[in-house]
Amino acid sequence: MFDLRSLYQEVIVDHSKSPRHFGKLDPCTHQADGHNPLCGDQLHVYLHIKNGCIDDLSFEGDGCAISVASASIMSETLKGKTLGEFEALFDRFQQMVTAPVDQPVADDGMGKLTVLAGVREFPSRVKCAILCWHTLKSAMHADSGVAKTE
Protein backbone atom coordinates (compact mmCIF):
# COMPACT_ATOMS: atom_id res chain seq x y z
CA MET A 1 0.00 0.00 0.00
CA PHE A 2 3.02 2.30 0.38
CA ASP A 3 3.18 3.30 -3.27
CA LEU A 4 -0.58 3.82 -3.40
CA ARG A 5 -0.24 6.23 -0.52
CA SER A 6 2.26 8.22 -2.58
CA LEU A 7 -0.63 8.87 -4.95
CA TYR A 8 -3.52 9.04 -2.52
CA GLN A 9 -1.88 11.10 0.23
CA GLU A 10 -4.18 12.34 2.92
CA VAL A 11 -3.98 15.88 1.54
CA ILE A 12 -5.22 14.61 -1.82
CA VAL A 13 -8.04 12.55 -0.34
CA ASP A 14 -9.03 15.57 1.76
CA HIS A 15 -9.07 17.95 -1.21
CA SER A 16 -10.99 15.46 -3.33
CA LYS A 17 -13.66 15.08 -0.66
CA SER A 18 -13.87 18.78 0.25
CA PRO A 19 -12.55 20.72 -2.72
CA ARG A 20 -11.63 24.37 -2.11
CA HIS A 21 -12.68 27.13 -4.52
CA PHE A 22 -15.47 24.84 -5.71
CA GLY A 23 -18.44 26.53 -7.37
CA LYS A 24 -19.32 29.33 -9.73
CA LEU A 25 -17.35 32.60 -9.73
CA ASP A 26 -19.48 35.64 -10.40
CA PRO A 27 -18.36 37.97 -11.86
CA CYS A 28 -15.58 36.33 -13.85
CA THR A 29 -13.54 37.53 -16.81
CA HIS A 30 -12.64 34.15 -18.30
CA GLN A 31 -13.99 30.61 -18.23
CA ALA A 32 -13.49 27.30 -20.04
CA ASP A 33 -14.51 23.63 -20.07
CA GLY A 34 -12.08 20.75 -19.71
CA HIS A 35 -12.76 17.12 -20.51
CA ASN A 36 -10.76 13.95 -19.96
CA PRO A 37 -12.49 11.31 -22.08
CA LEU A 38 -10.51 8.45 -20.52
CA CYS A 39 -12.25 8.63 -17.14
CA GLY A 40 -15.04 11.06 -17.85
CA ASP A 41 -13.62 13.99 -15.86
CA GLN A 42 -15.53 17.18 -16.65
CA LEU A 43 -14.23 20.48 -15.29
CA HIS A 44 -15.36 24.04 -15.72
CA VAL A 45 -13.02 26.76 -14.50
CA TYR A 46 -13.79 30.42 -13.77
CA LEU A 47 -11.17 33.15 -13.62
CA HIS A 48 -11.22 36.75 -12.59
CA ILE A 49 -8.16 38.53 -13.90
CA LYS A 50 -7.37 42.07 -12.77
CA ASN A 51 -4.24 44.06 -13.60
CA GLY A 52 -2.40 40.99 -14.90
CA CYS A 53 -3.13 39.04 -11.70
CA ILE A 54 -5.38 36.09 -10.93
CA ASP A 55 -7.66 38.01 -8.61
CA ASP A 56 -9.82 34.94 -7.99
CA LEU A 57 -10.60 31.56 -9.53
CA SER A 58 -12.89 28.59 -8.99
CA PHE A 59 -13.99 25.38 -10.62
CA GLU A 60 -16.98 23.09 -10.90
CA GLY A 61 -17.36 19.61 -12.24
CA ASP A 62 -17.13 15.94 -11.65
CA GLY A 63 -14.04 13.83 -11.70
CA CYS A 64 -11.76 11.32 -10.07
CA ALA A 65 -9.99 12.14 -6.82
CA ILE A 66 -6.79 13.13 -8.59
CA SER A 67 -8.45 15.58 -10.97
CA VAL A 68 -10.62 17.18 -8.27
CA ALA A 69 -7.78 17.44 -5.74
CA SER A 70 -5.45 18.84 -8.38
CA ALA A 71 -7.97 21.54 -9.35
CA SER A 72 -8.56 22.37 -5.69
CA ILE A 73 -4.85 22.66 -4.84
CA MET A 74 -4.15 24.55 -8.06
CA SER A 75 -6.86 27.08 -7.20
CA GLU A 76 -5.44 27.63 -3.72
CA THR A 77 -1.95 28.06 -5.11
CA LEU A 78 -2.75 30.41 -7.97
CA LYS A 79 -4.98 32.91 -6.22
CA GLY A 80 -3.14 36.24 -6.28
CA LYS A 81 -0.43 35.06 -8.69
CA THR A 82 0.52 37.00 -11.81
CA LEU A 83 -0.03 35.50 -15.24
CA GLY A 84 3.72 35.16 -15.60
CA GLU A 85 3.89 33.22 -12.34
CA PHE A 86 1.07 30.98 -13.58
CA GLU A 87 3.00 30.13 -16.75
CA ALA A 88 6.12 29.29 -14.75
CA LEU A 89 4.24 27.13 -12.25
CA PHE A 90 2.40 25.31 -15.06
CA ASP A 91 5.74 24.43 -16.67
CA ARG A 92 7.18 23.21 -13.41
CA PHE A 93 4.04 21.25 -12.53
CA GLN A 94 4.15 19.51 -15.90
CA GLN A 95 7.80 18.64 -15.35
CA MET A 96 7.07 17.35 -11.85
CA VAL A 97 4.27 14.96 -12.82
CA THR A 98 6.10 13.62 -15.87
CA ALA A 99 9.61 13.36 -14.40
CA PRO A 100 11.22 9.90 -14.45
CA VAL A 101 10.52 8.05 -11.21
CA ASP A 102 14.21 7.54 -10.44
CA GLN A 103 15.04 11.26 -10.58
CA PRO A 104 14.56 13.74 -7.75
CA VAL A 105 11.84 16.35 -8.21
CA ALA A 106 12.79 20.02 -8.07
CA ASP A 107 9.96 21.10 -5.81
CA ASP A 108 11.29 24.26 -4.17
CA GLY A 109 8.71 27.00 -4.26
CA MET A 110 6.01 24.60 -5.43
CA GLY A 111 4.22 24.65 -2.09
CA LYS A 112 1.35 22.23 -1.68
CA LEU A 113 1.51 21.28 -5.38
CA THR A 114 4.27 18.84 -4.48
CA VAL A 115 1.73 16.40 -2.99
CA LEU A 116 0.85 15.56 -6.60
CA ALA A 117 4.39 14.44 -7.42
CA GLY A 118 3.36 10.82 -6.76
CA VAL A 119 1.27 10.89 -9.94
CA ARG A 120 4.42 10.29 -11.98
CA GLU A 121 4.44 6.70 -10.71
CA PHE A 122 1.03 6.22 -12.36
CA PRO A 123 1.39 7.24 -16.01
CA SER A 124 -2.28 6.63 -16.78
CA ARG A 125 -3.23 9.23 -14.17
CA VAL A 126 -0.99 12.12 -15.27
CA LYS A 127 -3.77 13.42 -17.50
CA CYS A 128 -6.13 13.58 -14.53
CA ALA A 129 -3.71 15.79 -12.58
CA ILE A 130 -2.96 18.13 -15.44
CA LEU A 131 -6.46 18.62 -16.87
CA CYS A 132 -7.28 21.63 -14.65
CA TRP A 133 -4.08 23.41 -15.68
CA HIS A 134 -4.81 22.98 -19.37
CA THR A 135 -8.36 24.14 -18.79
CA LEU A 136 -7.20 27.23 -16.94
CA LYS A 137 -4.77 28.04 -19.69
CA SER A 138 -7.42 27.73 -22.37
CA ALA A 139 -9.68 30.02 -20.30
CA MET A 140 -6.90 32.61 -20.08
CA HIS A 141 -6.27 32.52 -23.76
CA ALA A 142 -10.02 32.91 -24.22
CA ASP A 143 -10.18 29.85 -26.44
CA SER A 144 -13.83 29.09 -26.80
CA GLY A 145 -13.07 25.41 -27.30
CA VAL A 146 -12.88 22.66 -24.72
CA ALA A 147 -9.52 21.78 -23.16
CA LYS A 148 -8.66 18.15 -23.67
CA THR A 149 -6.04 15.86 -22.27
CA GLU A 150 -5.70 13.96 -25.53
Partner: peptide
Amino acid sequence: NGVHPHDLGTILDRDGVAIRAGHHCAMPVM
Protein backbone atom coordinates in the same frame (compact mmCIF):
# COMPACT_ATOMS: atom_id res chain seq x y z
CA ASN B 1 -19.74 5.16 -2.59
CA GLY B 2 -17.14 7.90 -2.27
CA VAL B 3 -14.66 6.30 -4.67
CA HIS B 4 -14.49 7.43 -8.29
CA PRO B 5 -14.26 4.43 -10.66
CA HIS B 6 -10.95 5.63 -12.07
CA ASP B 7 -9.40 5.79 -8.60
CA LEU B 8 -10.84 2.38 -7.82
CA GLY B 9 -9.26 0.99 -11.00
CA THR B 10 -5.83 2.35 -10.02
CA ILE B 11 -6.07 1.05 -6.44
CA LEU B 12 -7.24 -2.41 -7.53
CA ASP B 13 -4.47 -2.57 -10.12
CA ARG B 14 -1.87 -2.33 -7.35
CA ASP B 15 -3.50 -5.40 -5.82
CA GLY B 16 -3.08 -7.24 -9.11
CA VAL B 17 -6.79 -6.95 -9.90
CA ALA B 18 -7.52 -5.77 -13.46
CA ILE B 19 -10.94 -4.23 -13.96
CA ARG B 20 -12.29 -1.63 -16.36
CA ALA B 21 -13.14 1.86 -15.19
CA GLY B 22 -14.78 4.19 -17.64
CA HIS B 23 -17.76 4.62 -19.88
CA HIS B 24 -17.26 1.28 -21.68
CA CYS B 25 -17.80 2.95 -25.05
CA ALA B 26 -21.42 3.40 -24.00
CA MET B 27 -21.68 7.06 -22.98
CA PRO B 28 -25.48 7.18 -23.40
CA VAL B 29 -25.74 4.33 -20.88
CA MET B 30 -23.65 6.31 -18.35
